[in-house]
Nucleic acid binder design. Structure first.
Lengths: 104, 104
DNA sequence: ACCTCACATCAACTTATTTTGATGTGATTA
DNA sequence: TAATCACATCAAAATAAGTTGATGTGAGGT
């Protein structure tokens, strides 16, 4: 069983690694194929594959096969989901405001 | 030297761990002292201290000493910063849209 | 001054993540 | 169909993150 916290933590794992942030930066300017991402990244081919899998599974990146090439792009849906989630988990919930509970 | 990607990755590390998300959930309803956080968390005292340090250093949580107790609360500034950062790193940058670059 | 409480820090350990090189697979080309 | 290209997968190794228990520290209380 996976708790909701474990599930949510996975969404943010996508943004927790500098290599993955470098990939996202490249994708901001449009769809890229793996070979293009690769030669700007100081990383091996299997390393890129590893990180792209994490980005795709987190939903923030979509992929598309075209013959031998795989093209990656930012997912607008994934973006919206991550932003909404971050807003939610950091939002003060004034409806249930309680005092500290400390024995002082 | 720390790259901007390494710096940004640290911000999201705060949200990458289920225990830390559980802490944030508690803080949504208002300021809490460590002892209160502790007994809802299936974690040891030193473990909580470890996670609170990460949350504070990432800027998403502020702490306040009051006598022997330390009180923690969500930081509105930290929240705004993390949200703005997430928006920025996932925003399509149409100004510099380029074609894929693949040799197809 | 001494004791206790709340929390921080440390070191040893466990577990998870990342990197690397080798090998596998499916699409395309010769 | 054999060779090659683009990428995925695997296993081993390196590194990082998290847990645990012991010890340190500083604020209060006695």
């Amino acid at each position: 069983m996976e708790t909701v916290h474990e599930k949510n933590a996975k969404v943010f794992k996508a943004f927790c690694d500098p290599k993955r942030l470098a990939v996202l930066e490249q994708l901001r300017s449009g769809e890229k194929c793996a070979c293009v991402l690769l030669d700007k990244l100081d990383i091996g081919q299997s390393g890129l594959s590893y990180h792209m899998k994490i980005l795709c599974e987190s939903g923030i990146v979509d992929s598309r096969q075209q013959g031998k090439w795989t093209h990656y792009r930012l997912s607008e849906t994934g973006r919206a989901y991550a932003l909404a989630l971050l807003q939610q988990i950091t939002a003060p919930d004034t409806a249930q405001l309680s005092c500290c509970g400390c024995k002082e």
